[in-house]
């Protein structure tokens, strides 16, 4: 299989994730978009690591997974706190700060 296909797939997934973050209103869904972006990067990293015959990319992929897990903890804590206050996780409702 053509090696660039993996990169194309990763780019498509990354773009889908970015569009999710930018277009969806629910904070949890937007956050899922971020996770999709991170995992698209992981796919590309693992592929490039094999392509270059070098382990650094795979090591970075592991670090990204750990970081993503930490980010989930922090992110869901914030989203749950704001949901408990407002009974809504929509990012459009969070509009008190402006000017």
């Amino acid at each position: 299989m053509n090696p660039t296909n993996y990169l194309v797939l990763a780019s498509v997934l990354f773009t889908l994730g970015a569009m999710t973050v930018l277009l969806r209103r629910n904070a949890v869904i937007a956050f899922m978009g971020v996770e999709l972006m991170l995992n698209a990067s992981n796919l590309a990293l693992v592929h490039l690591s094999r392509h270059h015959g070098d382990l650094q990319g795979q090591v970075l992929a592991f670090f990204v997974m750990v970081v993503a897990a930490a980010e989930v903890v922090v992110g869901l804590a914030i989203i749950v706190a704001i949901f408990k206050t407002r009974r809504s996780a929509s990012v459009d409702d969070a509009d008190l700060l402006k000017g």
Binding site: F14, G17, A18, A30, F31, M37, S41, V64, I78, I82
Partner: peptide, 20 residues
Amino acid sequence: QEASLKYFLLGAFASALLLF
């Protein structure tokens, strides 16, 4: 709380861009 949510979503988005 709102500041926290905004900072988190945009910050996570920016670090995903950096990662790519």
